[in-house]
């Protein structure tokens, strides 16, 4: 598995598009308003991921934290987010509203850019570089944003299962990240 693909899978679990969609789906929304929210949310989340990945090394330097040590902290946050997704099939509790303002919050933040995605962007941004991190996060963010617009209600049960599965995946990724943080120099 290439580095990018591995990272893309990590971000798929961190973003958890199925859980985001479950939090955002509402049957009575006009599609245009939902699309407006989706595009805005994607833009906000992508911009913040890019900023986090670009500024990761400088931020960690300023905080006097080695990237290796930060992996442990990132892993703990991702572990918690993953466990929450397994239990609730959600990435966060949020009352969703349409339009560009709803795209900023709650869709952009904290649904698309949840704590797990934020720390993953910082940790992988410091370790793997901003470009690779951003490129790996973007597909998951775009998929999640698209799913909030698509509104395939008859797949709710499926989405619920996938959200929990991705949550479990995130728990596994987080455990690996913690071990990496402990075992690195």
């Amino acid at each position: 598995m290439s580095d990018w693909l591995r990272l893309a899978v990590v971000f798929l679990a961190a973003v958890n598009p199925a859980a985001v969609a479950l939090a955002a789906w509402a049957p009575s929304r006009p599609r245009a308003r939902a699309a407006e929210a989706g595009v805005t949310g994607l833009a906000v989340a992508a911009a913040l991921v890019l900023a986090a990945a670009l500024g990761a090394n400088r931020l960690l330097d300023a905080l006097d934290i080695a990237p290796e040590t930060f992996r442990i902290a990132a892993g703990l946050v991702m572990l918690t987010a993953g466990a929450y997704a397994v239990a609730r099939a959600r990435v966060a509790a949020a009352a969703f509203e349409d339009g560009w303002k709803g795209g900023i919050s709650p869709l952009g933040l904290p649904l698309l850019l949840g704590p797990a995605v934020a720390v993953a962007a910082l940790s992988y941004g410091a370790d793997e570089g901003a470009a690779k991190t951003f490129a790996a996060a973007l597909p998951a963010l775009a998929l999640a944003a698209a799913l909030t617009v698509a509104r395939p209600h008859r797949w709710t049960a499926l989405a619920d299962g996938v959200a929990r599965l991705l949550g479990a995946g995130l728990v596994a990724v987080a455990a690996g990240l913690i071990v990496e943080g402990v075992r690195d120099i």
């Binding site: 946050v77 009352a95 509203e97 339009g99 303002k101 900023i104 919050s105 933040l109 904290p110 934020a118």
Partner: peptide
């Protein structure tokens, strides 16, 4: 609506800051 959005955002960022 706008006020609620910003309030929600503020609450989110506040929680994040505590974390």
């Amino acid at each position: 609506y706008a006020a609620r959005v910003w309030r929600g955002l503020g609450a989110t960022l506040g929680l994040w800051a505590v974390g």
